[in-house]
C-alpha cells in the first residue's frame, strides 16, 4: 500500500495515472453505445486496422508522436469501416466474415510494415512494438496531455449528443422519421470509436484495446435498465480498470499495462455477472427459488381448498 502512495506522489506517474483513468472513462462511455448498436467487435477490428496507419505515419515522419499516430490510425480506421461496409454491401459475405477479412488483412500489413521498420534504417524506432500490448509507463508528458484532451473531447461530445445517440441506439428508424441526420450521427459515433481506440493504443495496446470498449459496457448492462445510469456505471468501471491496470503494471516490472487493465475489467465483469441486482446469477437463483416456493404454496392451498370442496360436496350429498 505504501508503495502505491509513494508511486502516486511521483508527478510523472500522476499524469500517466490520470491519463489512463480518463481513457477508461471515455471508452466505457462510448462502448455503451456500440454495445447497444450491436457493434462491439467493430472496436476490435478498428484497433487491429490502426496498426498499419501507425506504421505508415511513423515511416513518413520518423517521429513518435501520439498526435501523428492519431491521424494515421484514424485514417486507417475509417478505411477499414468503409471496407467492411463495401464488402457486406456488394457480396454475399456476412458482416462477421467481412470484419475478419479486414481485421487480419490490415493487421498482416501492419506486421509487414513493422518488420520493415525494424529491418530498415529508421532511427529511434525502439518501442514501436510496445504499441502491440501497451506500456503506459513509456508515455511522456505531452502524450498524456494529448490523450487527456482527446478523452475530454470524447466525453463532451457524448454528453452533448446524448439524446441523439440514445435514439439511434434504440430506434434508428424513428430517429430518421423525426428528421435526425441518422447516417451522419452513425458515422460520428464510428469516428468516436476510432478516436477512443487510437487514444487507447499506447496505454493498452492494439490487441486488447477493444476490451475497454466492450467489457465495461457489458458489465454495466447487468446493473441497470436505464441508459443514463448504464453510461455512468460503464464509465466508472472503465476508469477503475484503467487505474488498477496502470498501478499494477508500474509496480511489477516487465508487465505490460494492457492485459492487466483488461483483467481488471474482466474481474468487474465477473462481479457483475454474479451480483447484478436482477440479471445476476445469484439474483436469478434467488428469484427462481422464490417462485418455486410461492408456486408450491399456491399448489398446497389449491389442493387444500380442493379437498375442502370435496368434503363440502360430500356433506351436501
Amino acid at each position: 500500500m505504501n508503495d502505491i502512495w509513494s508511486m502516486l506522489s511521483d508527478p510523472n506517474m500522476q499524469w500517466i495515472f490520470l491519463g489512463c483513468t480518463l481513457l477508461g472513462l471515455s471508452s466505457g462511455i462510448i462502448g455503451c453505445f456500440s454495445y447497444l448498436r450491436k457493434q462491439s467487435l467493430m472496436g476490435d477490428t478498428l484497433a487491429h486496422a490502426a496498426l498499419p496507419g501507425i506504421c505508415i505515419a511513423f515511416m513518413l515522419t520518423g517521429v513518435k508522436s501520439i498526435g501523428l499516430f492519431l491521424i494515421g490510425a484514424g485514417a486507417a480506421g475509417l478505411l477499414a469501416t468503409f471496407g467492411i461496409g463495401y464488402i457486406t454491401r456488394h457480396t454475399k459475405l456476412k458482416q462477421d466474415a467481412a470484419m475478419g477479412i479486414v481485421l487480419s488483412g490490415f493487421f498482416g500489413l501492419g506486421i509487414v510494415l513493422l518488420t520493415l521498420i525494424q529491418h530498415g534504417d529508421y532511427g529511434n524506432q525502439a518501442g514501436l512494438d510496445k504499441f502491440l500490448f501497451g506500456q503506459a509507463a513509456s508515455m511522456i508528458a505531452s502524450d498524456v496531455v494529448t490523450m487527456s484532451i482527446v478523452c475530454g473531447l470524447l466525453i463532451t461530445v457524448c454528453t452533448l449528443l446524448f439524446k441523439q445517440f440514445k435514439l439511434i441506439s434504440f430506434d434508428a428508424g424513428f430517429a430518421r422519421g423525426i428528421g435526425y441526420p441518422v447516417a451522419l450521427l452513425e458515422q460520428l459515433l464510428m469516428l468516436l470509436v476510432v478516436v477512443a481506440v487510437v487514444a487507447g493504443i499506447q496505454a493498452v495496446g492494439v490487441v486488447l484495446v477493444a476490451a475497454l470498449l466492450i467489457t465495461p459496457a457489458v458489465s454495466a448492462r447487468y446493473w441497470t435498465d436505464r441508459l443514463g445510469l448504464m453510461v455512468v456505471i460503464s464509465g466508472v468501471f472503465g476508469a477503475l480498470s484503467g487505474a488498477v491496470g496502470t498501478l499494477m503494471s508500474a509496480s511489477v516490472s516487465n508487465l505490460p499495462t494492457g492485459p492487466v487493465t483488461v483483467l481488471a475489467a474482466t474481474l468487474l465483469f465477473g462481479v457483475s455477472v454474479l451480483f447484478g441486482p436482477t440479471r445476476g446469477l445469484i439474483a436469478k437463483r434467488l428469484l427462481r427459488k422464490q417462485v418455486k416456493k410461492s408456486f408450491t404454496r399456491e399448489n398446497e392451498q389449491l389442493a387444500k381448498s380442493g379437498a375442502n370442496n370435496g368434503v363440502k360436496k360430500e356433506a351436501a350429498l
Partner: peptide
C-alpha cells in the same frame, strides 16, 4: 453474441500475455 465473444477472448488472451 458479439459482445460475449469480445469479453471472453480478450480476457483469456490477457491472461496468456500476463
Amino acid at each position: 453474441s458479439d459482445a460475449s465473444i469480445g469479453v471472453v477472448f480478450t480476457a483469456l488472451f490477457a491472461i496468456g500475455v500476463v
